[in-house]
């Protein structure tokens, strides 16, 4: 049955992918394109594009898209459920452990080391996002000026006016519509 197959396949992908949504894409390709041929390579590229374009975690987006293409809404639900099942079990187990033992000295020490790690990883992800959003050509001397202005305005709003992140993201979307859509800036 296709629903069970989708559920099982995405459960395996869910167990395998460590390190964020992008890490899931090669696994999805391996199973969905190479092994089962549920999608062609062209369709898979569509999955990647659309997962990046739409809001929401990329892994979930991809699971939903593949599920929908193969078996409609029930397929999307089966794939998504399969994908998150291993996470729910593993993260709940780790959470129990964390809340039980975090006051122990050794565990506290380990957790102290995680703080700089998370800051560093978020910095790395910021570098990637800033590069792809503001330097679309990839050349350092050719930033996209309009994007640079939108980002600078958003940054000032966050820092000086204490605006919320959602307000800034939404406002930037509206600014994008005006600048790129209405005025036709490249």
């Amino acid at each position: 049955m296709i629903y069970w197959q989708l559920f099982r396949t995405f459960m395996i992908i869910g167990v395998c992918c460590f390190g964020g949504g992008y890490a899931a894409l090669p696994f999805i390709q391996g199973w969905v394109v190479d092994r089962y041929a549920w999608l062609g390579m062209e369709q898979f590229i569509d999955v990647v594009t659309i997962s990046q374009m739409t809001p929401g975690p990329i892994g979930i987006n991809a699971a939903t898209f593949v599920g929908t293409q193969l078996a409609g809404l029930p397929g999307a639900i089966a794939a998504t459920l399969g994908f998150i099942c291993p996470s729910v079990v593993i993260v709940l187990a780790l959470s129990r452990f964390y809340f039980k033992y975090r006051s122990l000295e050794l565990v506290g020490g380990v957790l102290t080391g995680l703080k700089p790690a998370v800051a560093a990883l978020i910095f790395a992800s910021t570098v990637t996002i800033v590069r792809s959003a503001l330097w679309e050509t990839g050349v350092l001397t050719e930033p996209n000026l309009a994007a640079l202005c939108i980002a600078a305005a958003g940054f000032l709003a966050l820092r000086r006016a204490k605006a919320g992140p959602m307000t800034v993201i939404f406002g930037s979307g509206v600014a994008g519509l005006l600048v790129y859509g209405l005025l036709g800036v490249k």
Partner: peptide
């Protein structure tokens, strides 16, 4: 156009 703008906003948030 909206997505390009949102990406710039996300860069600021990050």
């Amino acid at each position: 156009a909206a997505l390009r703008g949102m990406k710039a906003g996300v860069a600021a948030v990050m």
